[in-house]
Simulated assay, not measured.
Amino acid sequence: MDDLASFLRTRRARIHPSSVGIPTDSRRRVEGLRREEVAHLSGVSVDYYVRLEQGRATQPSEQILDALARVLDLDETEREHLYRLARQRRRRAKAPSGRLRPELLRVLDLVAEAPALIMNHRLDILAGNRLAKLLYGRDLPGLNTARHIFLEETERGLYADWETCTLDVVGHLRLAAGKYPDDPGLASLIGELAIGSKRFRQLWARADVRARTHGRKAYRHPLVGLLELHQENFALPGEAGMELLVLSAAPDTPTEDGLRLLGTLTDTGSEHPERARAIASGVLLGNSADHERGTEHLGDHPDLS
């Protein structure tokens, strides 16, 4: 799914010669650095570097990898990915089982005021609390967020920052492919996304890697409007590839109000979206006093109770 040779080629192509002191002119036809230039700058023979990019050289030393990372200007995530790819022939990680301990499900239920979910390395949602289910508007076990973003949603769908989300997803899957190259489920997912999405194919060809542990995550919910949440990812000890994701709202913000309102909805509210949307808009656009009065009586509404 991913290999050292293709990663080196894509990283080499993005380095402009002038940034490493190599003059250029109009006759230059190579995008980025030439192979021999990378070899010279990193202190390895041209023949050895060519064999690296052809997948014929095995087990490069730590010194060679350090030199390549420096010349190719890799960030910390890319550097770790490079080392992982170089070690694949020696030791290949086994794909996680994906089994959830009951204790983890109890932890999800304890998170009552923020959407929380458990996700694996393939971006399958394995479980979620009530607010997470209401946020996505569907049952969560079995939902793959990569498939949801690329094949089911659009730029005007649930994800307010859809383009950024696509970058994050592809970067994450690239990392996962480097960690678990023998996972058939991951290989099948990547193939499905490549067939079904032109944007996925374009981003995958760039071979970018991303490790996102926290940051802004904005949703455009059909009933409560824009939710600008903060996402924190927590790796679960002893559960390889699994993470707990918590989406929180800053205090005293419209998003906090929106989450509070979202929590008052039930599954039946989605059956009456127009009436639910009208009530939600009235609450969110009113003053704070009206807001308090509106939420106090939402439980009496036949569609939102």
Rank of each mutant, 00 (worst) to 15 (best):
V44T: 13
R70H: 14
P254G: 05
R29A: 07
G43D: 10
P181K: 00
P17A: 12
D73C: 14
R35H: 01
E192C: 07
L226D: 11
L229D: 03
H40L: 15
L85M: 08
S6I: 06
T77I: 12
S61I: 02
P254D: 10
L203P: 04
A235C: 06
S42N: 12
A116C: 14
G286A: 09
E113H: 09
V50R: 00
E53M: 03
L261A: 01
D303G: 10
P141D: 04
E256P: 10
V246W: 04
P302I: 09
E153T: 14
R29F: 13
D109Y: 03
Q202K: 10
L123M: 15
G282Y: 14
G43R: 11
A57F: 00
E155W: 10
G157I: 08
F200T: 03
K94T: 13
S288Y: 08
V111Q: 05
G263N: 04
L126V: 02
G185K: 06
R92E: 07
R9C: 03
V246L: 15
P184V: 07
D109C: 02
V30Y: 13
G196R: 12
K198M: 07
I149Y: 10
A207F: 08
Y159E: 15
L131R: 00
T58L: 07
I15A: 13
T154F: 08
A207G: 11
L82A: 02
L223K: 04
A146S: 08
G215N: 11
A211P: 08
R28S: 07
I22H: 12
R130Q: 02
L110Y: 05
V50Y: 02
D139P: 12
G178T: 06
I195L: 13
E31P: 03
T145C: 06
T264L: 09
A176Y: 03
L261Q: 00
L143K: 05
S197F: 11
V30G: 08
P115I: 01
R14C: 15
P60Q: 01
Q231Y: 05
T145E: 05
E155F: 06
A211Q: 15
N120Q: 10
